[in-house]
């Protein structure tokens, strides 16, 4: 099981702070694909993915127990 955290407009769009993904091991690219197939309104092009609080590349592998976050373009400051 992989937990995916949601923030800002994604949190509001999904109506929840996190999603549970039934996978033991998945690449970041496949996670993007899986999310876009399941949630048609979601376009992950402009979304960064963080794994265990660090920005991840598409080829990085997420393992069960990792904390994943969808990071839309930031607007702090």
């Amino acid at each position: 099981m992989i937990t995916v955290l949601l923030f800002a407009h994604l949190r509001e769009q999904f109506g929840t702070r996190d999603l549970q993904i039934e996978e033991n091991s998945i690449t970041v690219a496949d996670l993007r694909k899986q999310l876009e197939e399941k949630y048609e309104f979601l376009d992950t092009k402009s979304i960064m993915i963080a794994v265990n609080e660090e920005f991840a590349d598409d080829e990085d592998v997420i393992q069960a127990g990792d904390t994943v976050a969808l990071i839309p373009p930031v607007s702090g400051g």
């Binding site: 509001e12 376009d43 402009s46 993915i49 920005f55 991840a56 590349d57 839309p72 373009p73």
Partner: peptide, 16 residues
Amino acid sequence: WIGNQQGTISYENGKP
């Protein structure tokens, strides 16, 4: 939410 949901920003490498 600013930053923005119109998808006008995209990250070539999937991250900044």
